Amino acid sequence: MNIPVAEAKARFSELVKRAQAGEEIVVTRHGKPVARVVPAAVEDELPRIGALKGLIRIADDFDAPLEEFAEYMK
């Protein structure tokens, strides 16, 4: 949708609602595009619990004593 600046000022709330619904509004001055009103990009938030499930692997010997510390374990 193309709309002149003066009309865009008068109908700004409506234009924002339309952009939020996915429509692209081109604001014009003297018939030439000067700005666009588009929906904001929404970043998907990763869920905190289980977000990395399947991406991290813990070794089977993760909690096994380290050889370097054997003398401290006696």
Rank of each mutant, 00 (worst) to 15 (best):
E24F: 03
V5N: 02
L55Y: 13
E68V: 14
E71T: 10
R18F: 01
P39A: 07
A40S: 08
A64C: 07
R57F: 12
E24V: 14
K32C: 05
R18E: 09
I49P: 08
P39Y: 02
V38H: 00
P4D: 07
P47G: 13
V26P: 09
P4I: 01
T28S: 09
R36T: 12
R11A: 08
G22C: 02
D63T: 13
E24W: 03
M73G: 07
D60H: 08
Q20Y: 07
P33F: 05
V16P: 01
D63N: 15
E67D: 11
V38L: 09
D61T: 11
A8S: 04
L55T: 05
A64L: 11
I58A: 09
A41M: 03
A41I: 01
E67W: 02
A41W: 02
P47N: 15
K53V: 04
D44E: 13
A41T: 02
M73K: 12
A35H: 04
A21W: 02
A59R: 13
T28K: 08
E45F: 15
V37W: 06
V34W: 06
R57L: 11
D63S: 13
A70D: 05
R18M: 05
E7V: 04
E71M: 10
I58S: 05
R57A: 14
K17W: 00
A10S: 09
L46K: 11
D63I: 07
K74Q: 11
E23D: 11
V37N: 06
R36E: 12
A35N: 03
V38K: 07
E43Q: 15
L52A: 08
I49Q: 14
R18A: 09
L66A: 13
E23W: 00
F62K: 12
E24C: 05
K32Q: 11
